[in-house]
Amino acid sequence: MARGNGGGGEALRPIIIKKVKKRGHGHHGGSWKVAFADFATAMMAFFLLLWLMGSTTEQQKGAISEYFNNPSGAAGASTAPSSSAVQGPGGASTSMIQLGGAMELHTASDIQEAPASNDDEAEKRAEELDRERLAALMNELKQAIEAREALAKFKDQILLDITPEGVRIQIIDHERRSMFPLGSSRLEEFTAKILYELANIIKTVPNRISISGHTDIKPYVANNYSNWELSADRANAARRALIVGGLPQEKVGRVVGLASSVLLDTAVPDSPVNRRISIIVMNRRTEEAILHENGTLLAVQPDGASPSSEGSTGGAAAPIAAVSPIGLPQ
């Protein structure tokens, strides 16, 4: 708006203020965002790779390495070019990242070539632990026979010894006290109690057991029934009593009747001690021999050792003096 200067002079010029807006240089202002996103993606992929490498096993790393050496589905039919002096092994795409192993490191040939000393040492250690376990069982049985009333009263009828097959427990007849009625496989009450107590001790070890029944030389006269059937029935009666006493059924590895073929006292074939139930807590070798159905326990005998009385059905048994009795009357 023009104002006068009081004398009708020339009007003042209006003051004009102009606002100038600066424009950007096209779309180049956001390019750094794209570069940063690429960088962040690359770093994420890198750290993901490190995490995967740290969490995979040697076998998995070997499988990954084998895949890059042979991407085809068929073993031995690699689609990668063959190695050359220029391209190196596996063609041009050689890996700069060492995965710490390859499939070749785990082939069957290498497993066969691995030293067998580790397996031998493990086997020796297992057998040593087995011997220690059975020795501890023997000590526990001896203490129980002295301390437990159900066993102490009949300790003159319980024999303990260690055979090449394991720890052997024999319950023998006494002149005035038999485990079974004459010609019967029914357990007397005291025999069942002995077996119940033994079951509580035997079940504490993982070893399986073998049960055999024996008779004296006196023949059992009946139609289609002899000392063979009687000894087998008595062995099964002992097996049932042990299971009632708490022994798991799967711990029974063998039940046999041997009649009078393996006498404990060969000098007196009709002696009451020949009528007995024999329970062997088997060692590892005997268990394996039975499981593989070798048909004989002679294979588990150590070099130079004589066969056990339980391992042969035709040979002479060890004399009674060779057994380590607990309270056996002289």
Rank of each mutant, 00 (worst) to 15 (best):
M1P: 11
A2H: 08
A11Q: 14
V268Q: 15
S185I: 08
I209P: 01
T296A: 10
V273W: 07
G26Q: 11
A37M: 04
P248I: 01
T79E: 11
I158S: 06
P272E: 12
F180R: 10
G62N: 04
H214Q: 12
T215A: 14
A289K: 12
I290C: 02
E188S: 02
A74M: 14
L242G: 02
R239V: 04
A321V: 11
P164M: 03
M138Y: 03
Y220S: 04
R208M: 08
I279V: 06
T313H: 10
F154V: 10
S271F: 09
R131W: 03
R208C: 07
A299K: 13
G304Y: 07
I97G: 10
R133Y: 00
I217G: 14
G314K: 13
A116F: 03
M44E: 15
I17D: 15
V205N: 05
S55D: 13
E197Q: 08
D156P: 15
R284A: 07
L50S: 03
E104K: 09
I209R: 00
G315F: 05
N283M: 00
F47Q: 15
W51F: 11
S306T: 06
V167C: 03
R239T: 04
G314I: 12
D270S: 13
S324Q: 15
M43F: 04
D216M: 10
E175Q: 14
P115M: 07
L129I: 12
D265R: 15
